[in-house]
Amino acid sequence: MPNSMIRIERLTKRYGPTEALRSLSFEVPRGQVIGFLGPNGAGKSTTMKILAGYLQPTSGKALVGDVDVAAEPVRARKLIGYLPENNPLYEEMMVVDFLRFIAEVRQVEKSVRAARIRNAVERCGLGGVIGKDISQLSKGYRQRVGLAQAILHEPDLLILDEPTSGLDPNQIVEIRALIKDLGKEKTVILSTHVLSEVQSTCSRVLIINDGQLVADDSPEQLTSAGEGALLVVLASRSGAPLELNHLHSVLSAVPGVTAVEPAEGEGHGTAGFRLRFGVEDPRRALFEAVVKHDLLLLEVRRTQASLEDTFRKLTAGEVRKAA
């Protein structure tokens, strides 16, 4: 049994003139839960669509287990459960009929079909709605139907494109718990824009930007890799108005500080800054500088780079497009 579940090799996808993926490569071993991040239009869905056997890549390869998705599409698709981005479902069907249909097409053996459907219904909490038309379901329940459809045949790999988008906070917590639970037995790759989701469910994070991989690490590594920062809020002791440029140069001159960025203050007469630093802790020098320049230090707080920071830093330039 090959120990990598997903292998993407120099994958390129062009939609007409748009180059959605540019020679993307990565590998995912069995059993991991992968968070797939990137700004809007980065190419997450495109990657997942190719992996799920829906789209053909322009060049490059996608392998699931040891099966080349392009060469043996049917065999590859058997190994995969896929929840597409906007979760298309046959609206006019009853939930149970829909699941039965999927089980038939996927050729789940007759002897276990009923049990598999029951299992999927139970795990996804669909018990109360199996007799309802899908068109009558709320968004959260539709999402559960999409998930049930994806796990019905007990696939090795789950590809979930934004599984929690548009859900209320309670539903999000439940769906996340379900994904975490599924991740115990399966390899899961999920895309999301909710960074905290990645921290709570994923063991590894892939960040892509503009069709290229820009980070591949554990959530812990990605949050601590960014150097530390100090959040400071200053006020003038004498009551004289604050000169931002002056403050900036004062703070920059503090030994140990590598960068100074403006940050939120506490209202009128105060100014906030974020100080980046390397190995040397600049706090002692900071206090001395503040006293020397007749300033008041209202607050100093040490912050760790958040996943947001890392994300923004790695995908800078794209954030504007997303807004």
């Binding site: 669509k49 896929y82 597409p84 479902l89 050729q107």
Partner: peptide, 14 residues
């Protein structure tokens, strides 16, 4: 139109 083509085309059949 409804997007179910994506579902259909990712099911294991030719």
């Amino acid at each position: 139109k409804s997007g179910t083509l994506e579902l259909l085309l990712t099911l294991p059949m030719e």
